[in-house]
Design a protein around this nucleic acid. Structure first.
Lengths: 151, 151
DNA sequence: ATCGCAAATGAGAATCATTCTCAATTGAGA
DNA sequence: TCTCAATTGAGAATGATTCTCATTTGCGAT
């Protein structure tokens, strides 16, 4: 799943074209297992296709977010991060602990069964209550990390 | 609770001073029940104290976030929002539904008992597991809102 | 009180991610 | 192949946030 045809149909369904730059960006996002910033994606894409500009990266990412293919994160360091939304149901999905003092971001994905079930049922509930089609979610816990506790 | 003395002690405890600009900012945050942007806070503060500059607003907010007094949010519209963290345990606390298509942000605070209990126990669990002192959390669900479904 | 100094501030410049403009290119359908 | 809207690249423009630096302020010691 999620090969070129899948992307192609997805784009056509929205009335968009699956161009080389867009494929290149999806390629990079598929290979990475981290949240990438626009510039990081640009640099990766640039290795293979030096002619693709940064503006196209931003435009494409915005499109992908609207299409629900990509998730946009913000950890408060002044730059947005992106990742494939498909991962939000898969093993790569995770939540975050963010230190208010040093800004460190800790991922955790060792969810309990209870935690998984809870979010699934909550999403179903909210979808109905607000007639809102939920694609994914983000959870961030803020506080003070172990390294900053002594301060 | 949370009067001038309380703030004063809190600041002194961190080795900071509770100055007029800082009091003014806390005053505005206390009165508002919305997430305010730095500029909105600046404009409010400016009514009472026209000499206080925008840079001071930013510096103070950063300080307040580090001290755990204020929460910083980011909904992807290019500007950060701030609110008193104390509310995160109180009746004002809420989660968000964010539309990927039009950017609309829907708050909900009609939590079920189950939802409340779940987050409380999850926070206790994570605090232990990661030796991380959790002050508050943010939950955002992304997807397509009712108004954008037809598109 | 007042002295000394680090903390805090205001004003404006500087930064930097993101968005916009516009002329040139590309691709799907006829 | 032809047409036209969609897409793109390059660079300028935008706008929130941060930085610089000279000045002011407030706590602790005298």
């Amino acid at each position: 799943m999620m090969g070129p045809h899948w992307w192609y149909n997805r784009f056509r369904g929205w009335g968009y074209r699956l161009t080389i730059p867009r494929q290149a960006i999806l390629e990079i996002l598929s290979k990475s297992d981290k949240h990438l910033s626009a510039e990081e994606i640009y640099l990766e894409v640039h290795k293979e296709y030096p002619s693709i500009g940064l503006a196209t990266i931003y435009r494409t990412l915005e499109l992908l977010v609207q299409m629900g293919i990509v998730n946009k994160f913000d950890f408060g360091d002044g730059r947005a991060r992106y990742e494939l939304a498909e991962d939000s149901k898969g093993p790569k999905h995770h939540h975050h602990l963010i230190c208010n003092v040093c800004g460190r971001v800790i991922d955790y994905r060792d969810f309990s069964e209870e935690e998984k079930n809870f979010f699934e049922s909550l999403e179903r509930n909210l979808s109905q209550r607000y007639n809102f089609e939920i694609k994914n979610h983000q959870v961030m816990f803020y506080g003070i990390c172990d390294k900053c506790k002594g301060k």
